[in-house]
Amino acid sequence: MRETVKLGVRLMLFALVAGLLLAVVNAVTEEPIALNERLKADGARIAVIGDYAFEPVETDTGGYDAIQSVYAALDESGQTVGYVYELVSRGYGGDIVLSVGVRNGAVSGVSVASHAETKGLGTADEAPFLQSFNGLSQPDEAQGVDAMSGATVSSDAVRGAVAQALAHARDVLGAGEVE
């Protein structure tokens, strides 16, 4: 019995020292880990609108079939500065998943998260196409963006999704009236 207690105390001491050491390491790494996790979760959203906090918005998306979810971008004082739409649109080879940032009623950025198109929609070659939406505020304008040559169906899918995001922001969220 006595020996068991002795061994237990010894092991407890080892565990205590180990715990202290881990507490120190945790104190150092806690902040960078939190930042990494946030970048991972919000990376696509940050890419299309900027470094803000994001919060899901409960909203009616009836009639906007591409919209999966809507996030409000909040600045430090909790003011809504814009919205990020996560959309799924049917492309040539499968679903195109993309994020669209809308700020003051105009597109602030478009980024493709995943797709099954023939090649590289959303990669470096297609960046000019995605960038050409920036600043547009009318759904019709988004529909009128020049398509990527040889990828008309894919381009249509993206244009349709961006147009839906803009229409929803204007008509349902009333984001166009900011400013």
């Binding site: 092991l11 080892f14 565990a15 180990a18 050491l21 881990l22 390491v25 945790n26 150092v28 790494t29 902040e31 960078p32 880990i33 990494n36």
Partner: peptide, 17 residues
Amino acid sequence: VIIATFVTVVEMVMHAF
């Protein structure tokens, strides 16, 4: 206990950096 401590250190440092 000793091995797990160092593994946890590696895990946290790698997660952070």
